[in-house]
Design a protein around this nucleic acid. Sequence first.
DNA 1: TTACTTAGTTTATTTTATAAACCATCGAGG
DNA 2: CCTCGATGGTTTATAAAATAAACTAAGTAA
Lengths: 94, 94
Amino acid sequence: MQELDPLLHSQLRLAIMSILLSVEEADFVYLKEKTEATAGNLSVQLEKLTSAGYITKETDGSGAKPRTICQMTDAGREAMQNYVEALKSYFTGL
Amino acid sequence: MQELDPLLHSQLRLAIMSILLSVEEADFVYLKEKTEATAGNLSVQLEKLTSAGYITKETDGSGAKPRTICQMTDAGREAMQNYVEALKSYFTGL
DNA sequence: TTACTTAGTTTATTTTATAAACCATCGAGG
DNA sequence: CCTCGATGGTTTATAAAATAAACTAAGTAA
């Protein structure tokens, strides 16, 4: 019965990470559509994942209308792997 | 990207369910030791699982010092199965 | 009988998730 | 050029959840 990384143990953050696992790059709008989250919620959760170092979040500058692009980091991928391993220990009896 | 049953998507409740999957009967004290939760927290989460119908919780009466015994219900087992299936959809890219 | 331990529950506090309100920019229409 | 609405976000407020602290009641041992 291992610890479950609390940063990943959240439906929306897990969904974000899941998408970034399979896509290597996604912008805010895409993530919003895929996850069906509100913009506010998405923004908050992206920030958390970013400051944990699990993803990068670059906002296309030039003062223009913003475009935020996210990618998974190596640390993020590793954290996901650990999370899965930890989860497995919860389902040995199933 | 399916919904994750919010009742199961909690570390402690998942741990409780996991134990009850593999054991068919466990008392409060045993669950407390295994999960390393505080009594208060455990009590609250057991109550939630009970009122959701995922487990049963019988307190050995006779006015004496209580002994609370928990078991998983069929609904609980089914919910766990669904939860696992839903989780899988989050890790296709891993 | 006083005082400690055990088995819990109830209530209060903190943390987390979520939504609502807001700000800035772009593009279209008058 | 100026409003008006849509787009792309962030900030802040609210609701829900997890956790801990305080309490209750019975048993046990000195």
